[in-house]
Design a protein around this nucleic acid. Structure first.
Lengths: 384, 384
DNA sequence: ATGTCGGCCTGTCGCCGACAA
DNA sequence: TTGTCGGCGACAGGCCGACAT
């Protein structure tokens, strides 16, 4: 009776999500630090995510937390991947524990640099057209994509066709009729497609992605187009209280060295605010930058791949000198080479960019292993 | 192309909701304190609402806020009524300002007792049947309801029919064909009804309510059945941080006597946690209760009206003696007369109940005006 | 008085190749 | 190679009174 049809099966609660699919939906630039490693947590960046999610600027009503430093070095105890039940939006839950001064002295392991997010190899991602989402027809599968990730059709049949079963992030299975027909011949998903489109409420501009994994399973994810004004205010807690909550939770955890929990929404947050400690140390203490220096930075393309944009450093200063002095968060002011630069942020963090030195870097066998632990005590900009 | 049809018109952002409709959707027992009046805010009750909304128990990880008393006497600066854009769930936003000791000495006005929530007179509320929500047909309008709240039909037509336009909480207008036909004759809503059902995602068990207001407008609201497990965890902020946020926001406001903002969800919260000061004072300081005493208490029926249930006081103690000592929040343990008592809470607050004295109360012209302001300083249970 | 059903009509869904970009 | 369209068949949506509760 419900207008939204039910998929074939339901995953049990708290089931671990498929990691490949989660990363594919999150995008090629998103990586999660390894469990057990040490990370740097930026309350300021977390605050930006909450502001983006609640669609509200940060008010000056927020009390100060003098004991909360702008960056908190933590042990990452737990990372779990999730997807919103309503929207399939991917997010991660992390349990962090601030380290005490004694623990800060421990040398860290090279593995803590974090493993790169390996995107699955056998997958494709297509942005839906008006025809794909209309009720008038099915889904047109790009030829190379179908040949690469779908099981081969039996071409002795006329027309060649098969049934595909694909699992989404929640473990629900969807059934599609895959047929190769038309003049000229093309791959199509027909029966079952419209049910999926209406259940997920997909519209033209959204993307779907199919993965053929090593277990010969077909996985199915969605990535919604970034629609303006898509977020709405929560009716649970005021955005002010949310801001206070994240700051107070971090401050309390920092003062007692106890664990706290945060959510990271890769596609809602402007930036990662939990980064591997080694990445931070390398960028802040082992990289020389100056105004006028050229750099490169990775961005995600519309087709879910990456490309580099180039720019010039135009300044180095605190983003919020009053509330977060000596933070390294987005401390680098930049200008972009291309005229479409309006969409790229004017401030970035050190660890996001790749400075171009006039002396070419020769690759070495162990380029990232540091000789000794970084200096104890809180890092500060004055150290440079 | 969207599976969800658009209603005829959209209300502009931030438009003031229709108060009658909001109260009708909220239910007969929900009343909002008057703007400008003084109220008592219970962080403990607010906490219960957040726990209910995030579907998570309160953890012991939450830090203590020693400067946050269990009840905060505040000036109510602003109240706005809202409805969730996705679910039409009604909620209210309140701006509160804790009063300083000087302000606490001011005598209060009798009007601060709060005005009773006057439910609209010309309205009806019907719980939807399987037939009402099925795609097979329309909506069967109870005869008395149609005759009372719908404009009269022209019975010279065969069959008598008209078009109805009704506005929902967001100001969107919905169009229905209202017809009187069948054997035996009955009132039906046909064309337009299924669009409404699917747009609002109504299922059997949910209720719709129609109001014919003084401006001869037809208003239309919904009240969803209380489905278990309907709330889902937010992916914005951890529930722990939300709890900390509400407490820290209240504590900060209390220490600086500054304004703060809260949301009250009448249908999600177990109980009102912002109540008129006069109501609180009357219940706590001018009502004698003891163990064994009989009392009555109002509850909402399934048909959106009220009835009284009776019970006996079985104990008086703090609900959480560690975290909230000397709070009056749900300090009364009760037993209910009827065997269906499993659905009614075993603890209530003083101001929710109506103790039955053996000496009948004679009504007086000014029964609620106090002779003098209540004692300064924080109230405590020891005063009784 | 009103919930559910069978009958029946009709509008939309959805599968097909044509055609063009 | 693939997005959109006209054609058209099938089926669910939806209006009707019958009938039972």
């Amino acid at each position: 009776i419900s207008p939204i049809p039910h998929p074939i099966s339901f995953a049990e609660e708290h089931k671990c999500l498929n990691s490949e699919l989660w990363h594919a939906c999150a995008g090629p630039l998103v990586s999660l630090p390894a469990v057990g490693s040490r990370v740097v947590y930026f309350p300021q960046g977390h605050s930006e995510q909450v502001a983006a999610s609640t669609n509200k600027e940060i008010e000056s009503q927020i009390p100060n937390y003098p004991n909360l430093p702008p960056q908190l070095i933590c042990q990452l105890h737990n990372v779990t991947m999730h997807a919103d039940a309503e929207t399939d939006e991917v997010y991660a839950q992390m349990t962090l524990q601030p380290l005490n001064p004694q623990e800060l002295k421990d040398p860290y392991l090279p593995a803590e640099l974090g493993t790169a997010n390996k995107q699955p190899t056998n997958y494709f991602c297509k942005t839906l057209t008006a025809s794909d989402t209309s009720t008038h027809g099915g889904f047109s599968v790009p030829r190379r994509a179908a040949e690469k990730v779908f099981p081969p059709l039996d071409f002795t049949m006329q027309p060649p066709a098969q049934e595909l079963f694909a699992k989404d992030l929640h473990g629900n299975e969807w059934k599609f009729r895959h047929i190769f027909r038309g003049q000229p011949k093309r791959h199509l998903l027909t029966t079952g497609w419209s049910v999926f489109v209406s259940a997920k409420r997909l519209v033209a501009g959204d993307s779907v992605l199919f993965i053929w994994n090593d277990n010969n399973q077909l996985l199915l994810g969605i990535r919604r187009a970034t629609r303006p004004q898509t977020v709405m205010p929560s009716s649970v807690l005021s955005s002010d209280s949310m801001h206070i909550g994240l700051l107070a939770a971090a401050a309390h955890a920092a003062s007692t060295n106890s664990r706290f929990t945060i959510f990271y929404n890769p596609r809602a947050s402007p930036c990662e605010f939990v980064i591997p400690l080694a990445k931070y140390v390398k960028a802040v203490y082992h990289t020389r930058i100056s105004v006028g220096m050229r750099f490169r930075m990775l961005f995600e393309t519309e087709e879910s791949s990456v490309r580099r944009y180039m720019g010039t450093i135009t300044g180095i200063s605190d983003l919020d000198a009053v509330r977060w002095p000596n933070s390294h968060w987005r401390s680098v002011k930049v200008g972009w080479d291309e005229s479409t630069a309006g969409e790229r942020q004017p401030r970035v963090s050190l660890w996001e960019i790749e400075p171009l030195t006039t002396f070419p870097m020769y690759p070495t066998p162990f380029p990232l292993r540091l000789k000794r632990p970084w200096p104890t005590g809180l890092p500060s900009l004055h150290g440079r």
